[in-house]
């Protein structure tokens, strides 16, 4: 007759072989991150507090942060990023509305085009801008030929506005992609019922579509803000006079002037700015329901 112990042994499933602690899986990626990301970041941080071997000091911070060049770069960075993001939001929302809610032939093609633009390198748009709006571009050449201008009449490209326009062109699809996904989840019936209740198109956009798309709009806008704050290629490629942004300043200090300490200080400020924006992005997104959408 089987004993209680036998029955217990029979009913007990065989134990799984011992698993390694879960933390072990983190070691390899942590090492990669440490070597490729945290160590260089630590070196930059260290460099910002003085040269190697010398005691850490805030002297470089005081000198750089008080300089006109830095303040000018910071102002340009913030203004360009803010206006570009605003432009991306307005243009992206408008275009997305048209693609999502205005039936026209080629809607699918428009969607594919957005994906294609996202995949293009940023300098390509800038290069195209130079060909179209540059001093010797199509527009200026045409105007000079037709109206006899001695100098190129359109010269916005080499100003802050040229950079902003190029960034809007490059980054608007980054707003449109999440917006189109959000619009596809809005029930057509909601819009129709709102219309039947007497709401005009603008009220429907403001009271039905915009609230539903707000998390996506914030996500796309925040992404644009982060990308434009750190944008380097477009600003460098346009070569606008007197338009210095923080990434450009870091490049100048480090590569052209070999002033690594100043470059490191500006890089630290740039990283802090990006992290602060990211924190605001998370906070705002959480406030407006991004958590429900799985975005936070």
């Amino acid at each position: 007759m089987p004993t209680v112990a036998d029955i217990a042994a029979f009913c007990t499933l065989p134990r799984r072989p011992a698993q390694p602690p879960r933390g072990l899986w983190l070691i390899a990626p942590s090492l990669v991150l440490a070597v490729l990301f945290f160590y260089p970041l630590a070196l930059i941080l260290r460099a910002a507090f003085g040269e190697e071997g010398a005691p850490a000091s805030l002297a470089a911070f005081r000198e750089v942060l008080g300089s006109v060049l830095f303040l000018d770069g910071l102002e340009h960075t913030v203004v360009i990023a803010a206006l570009s993001t605003l432009g991306c939001l307005v243009l992206g929302f408008t275009l997305s509305m048209a693609i999502a809610f205005v039936p026209f032939a080629g809607v699918k093609f428009a969607g594919r085009l957005i994906d294609a633009i996202i995949s293009l390198p940023t300098f390509l748009v800038t290069l195209a801008f130079t060909f179209v709006y540059g001093s010797a571009g199509l527009l200026n050449a045409g105007l000079m030929r037709e109206f006899g201008f001695a100098l190129p009449p359109v010269d916005f490209l080499y100003s802050q506005w040229g950079v902003i326009l190029a960034e809007i062109t490059v980054y608007t699809p980054f707003v449109m992609r999440p917006l189109l996904a959000a619009f596809s989840t809005i029930e057509t019936a909601q819009i129709e019922v709102a219309s039947s209740l007497g709401a005009r198109p603008w009220r429907i956009v403001g009271h039905i579509i915009l609230p539903a798309a707000l998390p996506a709009l914030l996500a796309g806008g925040s992404l644009c803000l982060l990308l434009t704050v750190n944008e380097f290629g477009i600003v460098l490629f346009i070569g606008a006079k007197d338009v210095i942004t923080l990434p450009l300043l870091i490049y100048g200090k480090a590569i052209q002037e070999f002033d690594y300490t100043s470059a490191a200080v500006i890089a630290v400020v740039n990283v802090a700015l990006s992290l602060a924006l990211y924190a605001v992005y998370r906070g705002v997104l959480g406030r407006f329901g991004g958590a429900r959408a799985g975005l936070v």
Binding site: E187, A189, Q190, S195, S196, G198, I208, A212
Partner: peptide, 20 residues
Amino acid sequence: IAPHERNIGMVVQNYALFPH
């Protein structure tokens, strides 16, 4: 005439309440 000028009330199968 546009739907918003027809003075109708409409109820649909999936309610279409405004979720926010």
